[in-house]
Amino acid sequence: TEYKLVVVGAGGVGKSALTIQLIQNHFVDEYDPTIEDSYRKQVVIDGETCLLDILDTAGQEEYSAMRDQYMRTGEGFLCVFAINNTKSFEDIHQYREQIKRVKDSDDVPMVLVGNKCDLAARTVESRQAQDLARSYGIPYIETSAKTRQGVEDAFYTLVREIRQH
Rank of each mutant, 00 (worst) to 15 (best):
E2I: 08
K4Q: 12
V7A: 08
V8S: 04
G9R: 03
A10S: 12
G11L: 14
G12E: 13
G12S: 12
V13C: 14
G14E: 00
K15P: 02
S16F: 04
A17E: 02
A17T: 06
A17Q: 10
L18V: 10
L18I: 04
T19H: 00
T19P: 06
T19L: 05
I20N: 01
L22R: 05
I23P: 02
I23A: 10
Q24A: 15
N25Q: 14
N25V: 07
N25M: 11
H26L: 14
H26F: 15
F27S: 03
F27A: 04
Y31I: 09
Y31F: 06
Y31A: 05
Y31V: 02
D32Q: 07
I35T: 05
E36V: 02
Y39G: 01
R40A: 07
R40K: 06
R40Q: 05
K41C: 09
K41E: 05
K41N: 14
Q42P: 11
V43R: 11
V44T: 12
V44H: 13
V44Y: 07
V44N: 11
I45Q: 13
I45C: 11
I45S: 11
I45K: 10
D46H: 09
D46K: 09
G47E: 09
E48G: 07
E48C: 13
T49R: 10
D53M: 04
I54L: 11
I54W: 05
L55V: 08
D56Q: 00
T57I: 11
T57A: 01
A58Y: 02
G59S: 06
Q60M: 14
Q60K: 15
Q60E: 15
E61N: 08
E62I: 00
Y63H: 11
Y63S: 14
Y63N: 15
Y63G: 12
A65C: 11
A65V: 10
A65H: 07
M66Y: 01
R67F: 05
R67I: 15
R67A: 11
D68I: 00
Q69A: 12
Q69W: 14
Y70G: 02
Y70W: 02
M71T: 08
R72C: 04
R72P: 04
T73S: 12
G74C: 03
G74P: 03
G74L: 05
E75V: 11
E75K: 04
G76V: 09
G76D: 04
G76S: 05
G76C: 10
F77V: 03
L78K: 02
V80M: 15
V80H: 02
F81E: 01
F81I: 14
F81W: 10
A82N: 14
A82Q: 08
A82K: 05
I83C: 11
N84V: 05
N85V: 07
T86A: 14
T86G: 10
K87D: 11
K87N: 03
S88L: 01
F89K: 03
E90M: 10
D91H: 10
D91G: 14
I92V: 11
Q94K: 15
Q94E: 08
R96L: 10
R96K: 11
R96A: 14
R96D: 08
E97T: 15
Q98T: 15
Q98H: 09
K100T: 09
K100D: 07
K100E: 07
K100F: 04
V102T: 11
K103G: 03
K103S: 06
K103L: 14
K103M: 10
D104G: 13
S105M: 12
S105H: 07
S105R: 09
D106Q: 08
D106K: 03
D107E: 10
D107L: 10
V108A: 06
P109E: 05
P109S: 03
M110C: 01
M110G: 00
M110Q: 03
V111S: 01
V111G: 00
L112G: 02
L112I: 08
V113S: 00
V113F: 00
G114Y: 00
N115A: 14
N115K: 13
K116G: 15
K116N: 15
C117Y: 09
C117D: 04
D118H: 00
D118Q: 03
L119K: 11
L119V: 13
L119E: 13
L119W: 06
A120S: 11
A121Y: 13
A121I: 15
V124D: 11
E125Y: 05
E125T: 11
E125K: 09
S126F: 14
R127F: 09
R127W: 08
R127Q: 12
Q128W: 15
Q128R: 08
Q128N: 10
A129F: 12
A129R: 02
A129E: 03
Q130E: 15
D131Y: 04
D131N: 03
L132V: 09
R134L: 11
R134F: 05
R134K: 09
Y136R: 06
Y136D: 06
G137C: 01
I138K: 07
I138E: 03
I138L: 09
P139R: 06
P139I: 07
I141P: 01
I141R: 05
E142L: 03
E142F: 01
S144N: 12
S144V: 13
K146I: 15
K146V: 14
R148G: 11
R148S: 08
Q149P: 05
Q149S: 11
Q149I: 05
V151R: 01
E152R: 11
E152N: 03
E152I: 15
Y156S: 15
T157M: 10
T157R: 09
L158P: 01
V159T: 05
V159E: 00
R160L: 03
E161G: 07
E161S: 10
E161H: 09
I162T: 07
R163L: 13
